[in-house]
Design a protein around this nucleic acid. Structure first.
Lengths: 227, 227
DNA sequence: AAAAGTTTATAACAATTCTTTATCCATATA
DNA sequence: TATATGGATAAAGAATTGTTATAAACTTTT
């Protein structure tokens, strides 16, 4: 079973917008069409999308501003800009915001589809769950429950390993406390939360020699493995 | 320590090739230039690259054929095609082989760089997105929530970091009070507004040693990070 | 099956983070 | 210049998180 991808399409030209939506839906992408930047932002805050296709020139909130606001909420989601302008500075601004692609009108729908799929192909793999993670100089083997640094092998306990694996799965994102507790400890009560704190301390000790990797706390939310 | 990326550049136009290599090397990418498809293939089999930039029309072995051969060895390496043709069918063929991007000549070197970096950002994990701001002598790492000044590292709390990040995103523009409150505190009530005041004071203390950076108040509107 | 060793849970307390309150200062407007 | 509204700062209070010690629950060894 393939997971259906959900796209946010922000395009003020109604004809083009409808056409694109129809085409993308036919190609298997669930597509929400918004006629301006503000509506698109509202849609983004209330739904979960896998990729955004944003027209640059739109009423109320232009594509660049919208992209910046979206980046504040999700620093990772792929963004493709559509624009009539092909001005250099414009293209650069788009990429600086963190665009994944920049397509100038007129373009064929097929080209959009190809570019979109090229990005999705890259994106999918990146958040796949791995068995072995590289944490700076340490290699973390989730199967063997080991932290390896050259000849030096540190065995992790099951809980330590499960927690570190969850953190790795969510590297550079916040791992929510409740989610971790429910996943590893099943019940997210007070005592398990204390227990989790203790394991965070243990993991920090294990990783303290590698300064480029750090488990930071996000107050009231959870923990984040930054590297 | 940053790992240097290694690029394979296949381009038969000697002038363009040398120019691109020089530019990419200056931007920190180790670049091997090959004048035709066969040499490029040989280079690929004997070295390890992170990304390929291939001209489509080349003597001995064209870019598409080369890409297919490369794909047999490495199904995953990102490929960018360069071409003078902008024919539809051509673009599609490129993407079908598994191109990550397709740039038609003439293009600016800066655009190539941006597209290349967009792909590398996706390919090499999320840490490339890590936004880092320069605030005078301070380096602000939003991921690690740190203000760095040489050896001196000051850890910021989550709230401090979120607020400073918002200010940086709107540097030299007014960050509206309500927008910041809704973004960070969710609810923009009276108490959260007081709380925000407190955090502004904290950030000012952190930044007080750098006179070129200042958080100024815009009465009745919000705050502005000037630098 | 007792002893020894590991792993996990709990308790107690320390430290940090965030919120709220109080008081004083600044700015806009009448 | 009086007054209302908005902002600055310090300090107290509440909640969350960090650390260490120790107890309990398992496993393995003898």
């Amino acid at each position: 079973m393939e997971k259906e991808y959900k796209l946010l399409l922000a395009e003020d030209d109604e004809n083009l917008g409808m056409l694109l939506r129809e085409y993308l839906e036919a190609k298997g992408y669930e597509t929400d069409l918004c006629p301006d930047g503000e509506e698109a932002y509202k849609a983004f805050t209330t739904n979960t999308y896998d990729l955004c296709v944003l027209d640059v020139m739109m009423p109320k909130k232009d594509g660049f501003t919208l992209a910046k606001d979206i980046r504040l909420i999700n620093a990772d989601i792929p963004i493709i800009f559509l624009t009539a302008k092909s001005m250099k500075e414009d293209v650069f601004q788009g990429f600086k915001i963190g665009a994944d692609d920049y397509i100038t009108k007129p373009f064929s729908m097929e080209e959009l589809l190809f570019r979109l799929e090229a990005i999705i192909r890259r994106t999918k793999g990146s958040n796949a769950i791995q068995d072995v993670y590289q944490l700076g100089k340490f290699t973390f083997d989730t199967q063997k429950q080991q932290l390896i640094d050259g000849d030096n092998v540190v065995k992790l306990t099951t809980k330590e390993s499960e927690l570190l694996k969850l953190l790795c799965n969510n590297a550079n994102k916040v791992l929510e406390r409740n989610f971790a507790l429910k996943t590893i400890w099943v019940d997210d009560n007070y005592f398990n939360a204390r227990s989790m704190d203790v394991y965070i301390t243990k993991l920090r000790k294990h990783l303290k020699e590698e300064t480029s990797v750090e488990i930071i706390n996000v107050h009231g939310k959870g923990y984040k493995l930054v590297m």
